[in-house]
Amino acid sequence: MAVDTAARTPTPAPADRNGARADGTRLPVARWVLREQRRSLTLWAISLAAITAMYLAFYPSMATDEMEAVMAGLPEALMSGMGWDRIATGSGYLESTIYGLLAPALLLVFGIAAGARLLAGHEEDGSLELEGTAPVSRRQLLLERFAALTFGLFVLCAALGVATLVLAPALGMEVTSGNILAATLGLWLFVLAMATVSFAVGAATGRRALALGVGAGLAVFAYMADTIGEMMAGGDWLSTISPFGWYLGGDPLTQGVDGAGYALLAGLVVVALLAGLLRFERRDLGV
């Protein structure tokens, strides 16, 4: 039975294994997390692209004179609040269906849940223990898991963005590719910011439910504040403090990248991440 007694003494790995090592050990944590997520990421990407395609396919039937007449009869505040005032234009339709509603809603569900799970969830269920006691620093562990979160959301946003890029011109939506890219970038930053808050709360506390709650709460606040701000007279400030406003307030589908808004979103990501890291490096794990 004692087949491997000789192998006990640590010996340098053979040269060919060294080659595999150098390649296979770069970002081992992030790779593993993404590997675990590969099925769900694939399904989500396909679903998001399909939903986007489905909605865009309705656009030709919406962009008619009759539809504009129907819309004209609705209250103005509601129209502008929901972004329906421009629904018959390509960019307006894209914003009120995909970029301003379905995409953020679905991506937030994925992103906030993933953010809460990737540290706090795995810490609570104990599966972080072997990783945390391996020769990996807490900082590396956290940053690699964050990288996996970022990359996962990037893949999903890319799937959605590519579907839009391909279909919008085909359906005559008259939105430039540059603006679609700008809006997709904003979408990614917005969802990433909310997911990062959830991730950071989980990193700071180790409590998955709390991380979920804070992430979801902030996302709901962001959406509500922006929507109410648009509808209410003198409510501009609500949109100004809302991360959702930072994303869509500058009308990226017609105006391109909103430098200030996007910078605020990126800043929120960095601040949340650093705060989470600071606490994660000091606290007890798995208690």
Partner: peptide, 19 residues
């Protein structure tokens, strides 16, 4: 887990699992 350790011990997974 072996990759987290820079690849050390990867050759022993098979024998130990068998054992």
């Amino acid at each position: 887990l072996v990759r987290l350790r820079g690849g050390r011990g990867s050759g022993r997974i098979g024998p130990l699992a068998e054992r």
